[in-house]
Nucleic acid binder design. Sequence first.
DNA 1: TTGAAAGCGATACCAC
DNA 2: GTGGTATCGCTTTCAA
Lengths: 334, 334
Amino acid sequence: MVSPARSEPRRVTIHDVARSAGVSRQTVSRALNDKAEIDGSTKQRVLDAARELGYRPSRFARGLVRQDTTTIGLVIPDLLNPFFTEVAAAALEAARARGWHVVVYDTADRAEEELSTLQVIGSQVDAVVGYFSCSESDLDRFTRGMPMVLIGREPRMGRFSSIRIDGEAGVHAAIAHLVARGHTRIGMLDHDNRAEPSVRRVWFTAAATALGVDPGLVAGAGQSADGGGAGLGNLLAAHPDVTAVFTFNDIVAIGALREARRLGRSVPRDLAVIGFDGLQFGALVEPPLTSVALDTRRLGALAIDQVGRLLTGADSLEPGELVVRAELRPGGSA
Amino acid sequence: MVSPARSEPRRVTIHDVARSAGVSRQTVSRALNDKAEIDGSTKQRVLDAARELGYRPSRFARGLVRQDTTTIGLVIPDLLNPFFTEVAAAALEAARARGWHVVVYDTADRAEEELSTLQVIGSQVDAVVGYFSCSESDLDRFTRGMPMVLIGREPRMGRFSSIRIDGEAGVHAAIAHLVARGHTRIGMLDHDNRAEPSVRRVWFTAAATALGVDPGLVAGAGQSADGGGAGLGNLLAAHPDVTAVFTFNDIVAIGALREARRLGRSVPRDLAVIGFDGLQFGALVEPPLTSVALDTRRLGALAIDQVGRLLTGADSLEPGELVVRAELRPGGSA
DNA sequence: TTGAAAGCGATACCAC
DNA sequence: GTGGTATCGCTTTCAA
């Protein structure tokens, strides 16, 4: 639980400025807001007094009377993960285009931070967009009545809006690509930190099965490059005949790339690697990463668009519109 | 200029809830804020009414009366640049630890966005931390009286606080490292988008001169991997005898690494490369990047610490404390 | 336990 | 052009 920080007690108000300049509060307001109906010299006098006293208007008082600012809360599990950075950057851009402000919360992938964020966010923003892993009832309880757009998660409660991530076709294309190149033993590095298998794993299983290859060659991997390296080691130890691997995300794939090099396996000749996310960064490694790519710009923009509709009461986007589909982006690693 | 977005007109207030539940406004307030002095059944009735009406308290009204929330504005030139992402993540973490909220503004490296941000930020946050490239007078004009911490820039006006980036010793160590390995023709890829040479170039020149090597082998490079590749091409075309290169930042260095590979130059054997920033990401390329590294976590935390002091009126940190020094971090590229 | 009244700090609508 | 006054929505004394 965060403890509210005491900021410096607000001292100087519009009243002080008014008194100091020998005018009314009204006139101060006019001077500060560049209103027309005010005498030039009076205005200057007020401005001087304001500067003198170090006066700054209260954003709360101002917001209370002119209800014209919109602030969105953006909740991200880990800003250091380039995928979320890209989404955040896109959301910031879309919000800026509308003149909205965005408060960013990084929950550090921890359930407790997520809950504490939910608790405080309600009184700080007008609407929320982001990634959440807690239960819907917790989500609902702490954000009663708040417009919410959930990314990459399909809510049961109608009260939440969501952006669906559809990787089915993209992953199928990836595995098909590998099969077409003659691979028959295709492994996967899934995440390892949760009880249930990931959706990406489900897509992998479906694609492998449909294409007639063994979907069972799976190892867990921590969500980092080191994790990917270790995961690849485990996978190859368990299944030495694996010649291609699909990974939970690009970071893991890059770790696998590095580990493959260490093991003396040339990529893509001895081992083909395909990641997931399509990070800009994947283009910079050697060989450039082949990946099942998500359009993160679209993802962020879509989320902001939808939350805007919730906010203004405009028609919500159709479910068919609220989807970002992944597609295979060829690099040189597979 | 951003136009204020009209959010849905706030409808239901605490008054409506009170009426609906047949109690007074403060009873509603008590129920919602978990105060002690309230009957259980009354409380439940109020809560039900509130949920029924979809009531959410106004953050402005609440903020106005209990002045206990602190919001920092974080201004970043480009969130997609991993360096700024790291700084932002560190700042977010430090702010969260204090229970502060952070509104993030990405100015997309554009002067106009920076100015429009300055104009609106004043009425949205309690203090500002960030990177700015506009003039101090603009900075001052738009943020009168606002506590400000400038990063990587040394303000003349006493009104601004700042975090200094000191790369002098780090760059010297880098060039000394190269000289020790026998390099005598050491080039630099500086940025190319501004009139004046960068501070990093100044450090390079000083170090090269001190170490007795020619400081004049410099080419410009766009601030991207592609820019780095092109820049290296130009540098080598102009000075074919260059055997080592120091770059403006790690992204540029990674582009140079890639270009060197394309040219058939093995790194570090045929060409040594040293970047600047020390991105986490630099460890993932091959060979891992040697870099003059900045402690981005410390940088972000320091900025938040200092802005906190400004806010509470506590003693400011000593100038000697408000510095982040870069140091050479060995990788495999030099 | 509950309610009436007094702010919080600013802007808007009127008179003057 | 300028100054009262009401108001924004909520919390906090203080009585009842």
